[in-house]
Design a protein around this nucleic acid. Structure first.
Lengths: 254, 254
DNA sequence: CAGTGGTCTAGACCACACC
DNA sequence: GTGTGGTCTAGACCACTGT
């Protein structure tokens, strides 16, 4: 028997499980527990019943229950220790894990950032572009430059290259939605990306564009995105106003 | 039959599987496949045999084989599609996923970055420290300032706060190994961390310390690390020379 | 249609933590 | 010890992709 609290199986109603649904059982179970945790029904540090009991209560097999648990562990909501049990992570940590960028924050308060397309052309790849995209020099490349603003102030200047053969990117679409959103809707499956984040002083032109003084600190990011086949989908070179933007991220199981 | 290449089960010798070993079977299988992939035995785009066949060849059950596959998918080494099969991703992408920081790069070429402890004191938490660490004001706090250099040049200035009750951090230890390494060896289990990366201009003092001109662009990072119980283990406020450092990272399944 | 990965089940044994 | 999560097995059915 636990000294402080006995394992709380708690108010987990089986009713919400739908075996006819196309959404997997383990996922329904996971969402079930997730909602219970987020709703505060299972306070910080609560020890869940063991997976056999839980499986029994919810009417699923143990492997299914385990898969649900693994999902929750992966999301950082619970911690498991062999021989000990499963405990609910503190809500403070859980909230901090819902990583938000400034753009997300702005959206949340109804201040949708605006995007102005500065240029959207197709040109033959220079040696540098070809190198970055892993294609032959001279191949047509889509080159985009966008200016992101929020609250009436410019925040970032984004330049991107894509292999022209892959997709067409209408300027109107680029003004209303993100590049990655567009790519995904075009059926391009992204596999991974690598990025480099740095800082440098703005040139005169950059400072003017972002409404900063000359020599202001810029946050820079270069990103290369790959699809499942290992070919480069997109290369981006972005600069952000250091005064008005920062990257927020969270790391799990470090 | 595949038009270009038939599924290659390939040179997978069962010999290396050791059922008596404490390392799980699925992990041995995964490592097995990983080595085969990295060694180039399974070139980019190779379709693996289906998991039932593979399981049979290696003498494990299908669930075990699946778990190995899930591990490889998680590492970004293979891509799976229902109804299609499992393909090996391009070595270029795989290499890009082995994220390296500049510090790692330096270590790789034998240029171990040096750490100079500027201060290592225990003081009562100010209101700000208390807020950051989630403790009461006035509680003793370990406060550390370190200067990281490489190739004879300063690169970063790291300041950290930790609850003093948790651990003692000898200055000598801090000069020879990283803070996180020390924490882990002290049995502190890290759960997650959140960080904010930004850019700003250096103050005169900061510029002097990092060997830069006044107003040079700095890369900044604030990080809060939590343990399994949801309590703050560490808060760090770091500044990096924008000219000499940048963050490298990779994203999977975006 | 055949072949693939995705899901689910019912059992078993083991390693570990705590008492 | 007892109880926990971690691993492994053998089998089944389904959803999706390609032909």
């Amino acid at each position: 028997m636990a000294p402080q609290q006995e394992p709380a199986s708690s108010a987990l109603h089986v009713s919400t499980l739908d075996r006819g649904s196309p959404v997997p059982l383990y996922f329904q179970v996971a969402q079930h527990l997730e909602r219970a945790i987020e709703a505060g029904a299972l306070p910080r540090g609560t020890r869940l019943s063991n997976e056999i009991e839980l499986a029994g209560e919810l009417g699923v097999s143990r492997p299914t229950m385990r898969k649900a648990m693994e999902y929750l562990v992966g999301k950082g909501l619970v911690v498991r220790q062999r021989g000990v049990g499963t405990r609910v992570v503190s809500p403070k940590v859980r909230r901090s894990l819902e990583l938000t960028s400034l753009f997300d924050d702005l959206e949340a308060i109804g201040q949708r950032p605006t995007t102005q397309v500065l240029s959207n052309t197709i040109e033959d790849a220079t040696a540098e572009m070809a190198e970055l995209l892993g294609i032959a020099k001279g191949t047509p490349v889509v080159s985009i430059a966008r200016l992101r603003s929020a609250l009436g102030q410019p925040i970032a200047c984004l330049t991107n290259y894509l292999s022209a053969s892959r997709i067409s990117l209408p300027t109107e679409a680029l003004e209303s939605q993100g590049l990655y959103q567009l790519l995904r809707r075009s059926g391009i499956q992204l596999h991974s990306a690598t990025q480099v984040i740095g800082a440098r002083s703005a040139t005169a032109a950059e400072a003017r564009m972002l409404g900063e003084g000359k020599g202001a600190a810029l946050l820079t990011m270069q990103r290369t995105a790959y699809d499942d086949h290992g070919t480069v989908v997109e290369y981006g070179n972005h600069i952000y106003s250091g005064a008005r933007y920062s990257f927020h991220m969270s790391l799990l199981s470090i």
